[in-house]
């Protein structure tokens, strides 16, 4: 479970995130959406312990991130939008390295189904330089899943994936949630959020605009019951959608 209470992050005079509170229960997938500069990345970085919050508390699986950062980080996995891999480690060596960091003694047994599921079983001996962008992304995911995290953060997970990869990634997220993981998914792809997430948190200028299940949010903001999340998003953030392109005659 992820519990964020009163999260505030300031950069000098500028407040990137203000008094943000939310909870993600096991089995839930929360979509973190908002326009550019809304504070999504800052929220993710604070929640994963990469940067310290100015105020507020973050609990990962019941462990306070400030009081016991190592304990909290043992329970989480962070999948950044840009796969940052070590040039000289093969796929398998990446998993070995992460296993040592997390103390996963049976990593070989765990790695096999993960790699098979991600269609990377035959790529164990390859270096990142030999992998496509999508494969690199999958390797990041494999590393993240190796220690069976209870809390998972995805930052734009579909970047660089082919249609097959996108479908599998969505299924992976759903399956992880079914298995009891609490997931936060940050993305600009509102259709993805609508498809995968059970809950949505809409941020604007560092503040929470809306938080709740997709149905609740739709009821609160939509102009009609069949409104898409895109319509709800623009309504909630009070931005006008981009006008349709003007085609030359």
């Amino acid at each position: 479970m992820i519990e964020v209470t009163g999260l505030t992050k300031r950069y000098g005079e500028f407040t990137a995130v203000r008094e943000l509170s939310f909870t993600v229960q096991p089995g839930e997938v929360m979509g973190l959406v908002g326009p550019n500069g809304a504070g999504k990345t800052t929220t993710l970085r604070c929640a994963t312990g990469i940067i310290p919050p100015t105020l507020g508390t973050i609990r990962i699986g019941g462990t306070d991130l400030r009081e016991d950062p190592v304990g909290a980080k043992r329970r989480l996995a962070f999948m950044p939008d840009e796969p940052r891999l070590f040039d000289h480690l093969t796929v398998e060596q990446h998993l070995n390295f992460v296993a040592r960091l997390h103390g996963v003694t049976d990593w070989r047994e765990r790695a096999t189904p993960i790699l098979t599921d991600l269609e990377m079983a035959d790529k164990r001996a390859l270096l990142p330089g030999e992998l496509s962008r999508g494969m690199k992304q999958k390797l990041v995911i494999a590393c993240g899943l190796l220690h069976s995290p209870a809390v998972i953060f995805f930052d734009e997970p579909l970047t660089g994936l082919d249609p097959g990869g996108i479908r599998r990634m969505k299924e992976t997220m759903r399956r992880l949630a079914r298995d009891g993981a609490a997931i936060i998914l940050s993305s600009h792809l509102l259709s993805l959020v609508e498809e995968v997430c059970t809950h949505v948190l809409i941020l604007k200028a560092g503040e929470k605009v809306a938080d709740g299940s997709i149905t609740d949010i739709r009821t609160r903001f939509a102009v009609h019951p069949d409104a898409s999340l895109e319509e709800v998003f623009f309504k909630a953030t009070e931005d006008q959608p981009a006008p349709p392109p003007v085609l030359p005659p």
């Binding site: 000289h88 093969t90 060596q93 390295f97 040592r100 003694t105 049976d106």
Partner: peptide, 15 residues
């Protein structure tokens, strides 16, 4: 980016 895996200096145990 390198294209040939390099040998391991020692075996890295998981623990």
């Amino acid at each position: 980016a390198p294209t040939k895996p390099r040998s391991e200096p020692f075996r890295l145990g998981a623990h």
